[in-house]
Amino acid sequence: MIARLQYFSRETLISLRRNLLMTLAGILTVAVSLSLFGGILLLSKWVDHGTEVIKGGVRLEVFMTVNATKQQIADVRTNLEADPQVESFRFLDKAAAYEEFKRIFRKNPDLVAAADPESLPTSFRIVPKQAEFTNAIKRRFAPQAGVDDVATPEEALRGLLSATRTARWIFIGLSIVLLVSSLFLIVNTIRLATFARRREIEVMKLVGASNWFVRVPFMAEGLVQGLIGAGLAVAVVVALKIGFDSWFSSPTGFFRDFYVTTSDAVSIAVVVVVLGILIGLVGSLIGLRRFLRV
């Protein structure tokens, strides 16, 4: 068993070295495409958190006063149900409001500690049938009994959201193109490697090496490229996460509500590594396909 491991690692290293330039090209394209992909995912998370208020199509919020009566809340609900300009709405009770408060002010534990669920207002999140109805709905509900305020999201935030949506799709498309080309590069590297070693392969088959034994060093070669590429990409994601934390840390800036959590970064890193492994293995399997038959 140990002899086999030694054999595989030696053969893999020899092959990687023999194809050094192709190997480096493979690693770099994997790294660039996965960095782009990971970076986009991270940026999306960052924007998602910052634009939570208007996410899910919520366009305006009706805040009740803190001590609005049950009857007042029920009246507003009835009116919303009857309103022809309202597409849908959702009621946030005090507990839900507190959960969201905790999430939004997660960087401000003092504030969270001081907050009392009872002191938070309940609210309705409203999706208008058309965006143009926003102000009409606001005018209709602001004067109702028990209503404290009707908030509409900042125009700037809304603009940002639609801009990032477009940008996100462009970048995801771009990184998929790059991922596919890195796959092709690995396929090609493995093909070259099998060609360079066709005599060895021929002898191995003649003396009865199992198919897996023949394949493993090449698959390891693809895997190593995918993994090193993914490792570099993870480093880029981590650097970006640290960057986001420090560049936009001002508590008063426009981006104060934007953030990425460590668990966001970790799950993105996992996705990146899994993709790297897949690209390496699938690439080498495709590259090996030609000689899979006896």
């Binding site: 009865g208 090496a209 198919n211 038959r293």
Partner: peptide
């Protein structure tokens, strides 16, 4: 079967 061919070849020198 395809995957038993290596076993056959281990019994044959060429």
């Amino acid at each position: 079967s395809h995957w038993k061919v290596p076993q056959l070849r281990r019994n044959i020198g060429t």
